[in-house]
Amino acid sequence: MNEEINNYLTGILPEQEDWITRLETEAKADHVPIMDRAGMNFVVQLVRLTRPENILEIGTAIGYSALRMQDASSDSFIVTIEKDEQRYMQAIKNIEALGKQQQINVIQGDALDKLVELADQGKRFDLIFIDAAKGQYERFFELASPMLNPNSVIISDNVLFRGYVANPVDVPKRYQKMVEKIRNYNKMLMNHPDFKTSILPIGDGVAVSYKMKEEEVLLREG
């Protein structure tokens, strides 16, 4: 998103609670990437509107987004996966500090493995939030989407990645492979037979993919 517009949207957000500011400050101090305020506000609004009973998050970091989503829908239960042990411990600390350990279950491990385990356990979700290794987004989607209930959504963050996705000619060499994978991911989302997707230029780019009901899929194919 244009930086001027993003700054404007961030600037008009209402004053937030102290715990949110504390987590944002912690993430910045530890150089942990979390969703920017405008993007997070959009996700939180989607959670308020949809009131998902069960949420799956891929990429916990320090627990910021899980806590923001749970705060927006107090009846929601969240399963969130984090590969990095240090960030996992930070997330546990932050979640316990706010007394949310009964509503948020943090799993430590590689999401590619843990998603298979969750599927084997028969887990089902009403909202899935993907915000982890960008190069693995398509694989995360393949593993997680069968666990999503119809008439529910998958949210993917960073799908415009600093604008490079829209202008691949000027991508620094170290990002070229990842940007190509994100471009392929976005194309897959937009053409998936079971989903309808919108990509919004909020924050670093947010994709919202709606899983159609079976009758909608049949109508689309017919």
Score class of each variant (00 low, 15 high):
residue 12 I to W: 12
residue 42 F to N: 00
residue 19 W to E: 08
residue 135 G to D: 07
residue 14 P to C: 10
residue 123 K to D: 06
residue 25 T to D: 15
residue 210 Y to C: 03
residue 114 K to G: 00
residue 35 M to P: 00
residue 117 E to H: 12
residue 93 K to E: 09
residue 8 Y to R: 06
residue 182 I to M: 10
residue 6 N to A: 14
residue 153 V to Y: 13
residue 5 I to S: 03
residue 164 Y to N: 04
residue 141 F to Q: 05
residue 178 M to K: 12
residue 6 N to I: 10
residue 83 K to C: 04
residue 143 L to A: 07
residue 164 Y to T: 01
residue 116 V to I: 14
residue 200 L to G: 02
residue 78 I to L: 10
residue 104 I to K: 13
residue 135 G to K: 13
residue 97 A to I: 01
residue 49 L to C: 11
residue 218 L to S: 05
residue 67 L to A: 09
residue 11 G to C: 02
residue 157 D to P: 04
residue 168 P to N: 07
residue 144 A to K: 08
residue 181 K to G: 05
residue 131 D to K: 13
residue 78 I to R: 15
residue 219 L to F: 11
residue 114 K to E: 10
residue 51 R to Q: 14
residue 64 Y to A: 05
residue 125 F to H: 07
residue 130 I to W: 12
residue 159 V to G: 04
residue 181 K to W: 03
residue 16 Q to A: 11
residue 60 T to Q: 09
residue 21 T to D: 15
residue 24 E to A: 09
residue 74 S to Q: 14
residue 59 G to T: 09
residue 94 N to A: 03
residue 177 K to Y: 04
residue 21 T to S: 11
residue 150 P to S: 09
residue 23 L to M: 15
residue 70 Q to H: 15
residue 36 D to Y: 12
residue 16 Q to N: 02
residue 181 K to Y: 06
residue 171 V to M: 01
residue 33 P to S: 08
residue 19 W to N: 11
residue 208 V to G: 03
residue 144 A to M: 04
residue 188 M to W: 11
residue 84 D to Q: 13
residue 125 F to L: 01
residue 56 L to T: 07
residue 38 A to V: 11
residue 127 L to D: 01
residue 143 L to K: 14
residue 161 F to V: 08
residue 203 G to K: 14
residue 218 L to C: 00
residue 163 G to C: 05
residue 65 S to V: 01
residue 117 E to N: 13
residue 180 E to H: 15
residue 124 R to C: 01
residue 219 L to C: 00
residue 57 E to C: 14
residue 40 M to T: 10
residue 159 V to D: 05
residue 63 G to L: 01
residue 49 L to N: 05
residue 115 L to D: 12
residue 130 I to G: 03
residue 171 V to I: 02
residue 86 Q to T: 06
residue 77 F to I: 10
residue 170 D to R: 14
residue 93 K to C: 00
residue 104 I to A: 11
residue 45 Q to G: 00
residue 14 P to F: 10
residue 35 M to Y: 02
residue 111 A to T: 09
residue 91 A to N: 09
residue 45 Q to H: 11
residue 154 I to G: 10
residue 149 N to K: 15
residue 212 M to D: 00
residue 50 T to A: 05
residue 152 S to K: 13
residue 212 M to R: 14
residue 218 L to F: 03
residue 10 T to S: 14
residue 184 N to E: 05
residue 41 N to V: 00
residue 220 R to L: 04
residue 109 G to R: 13
residue 146 P to N: 10
residue 146 P to L: 02
residue 22 R to N: 13
residue 71 D to Y: 14
residue 137 Y to E: 02
residue 43 V to N: 03
residue 146 P to C: 05
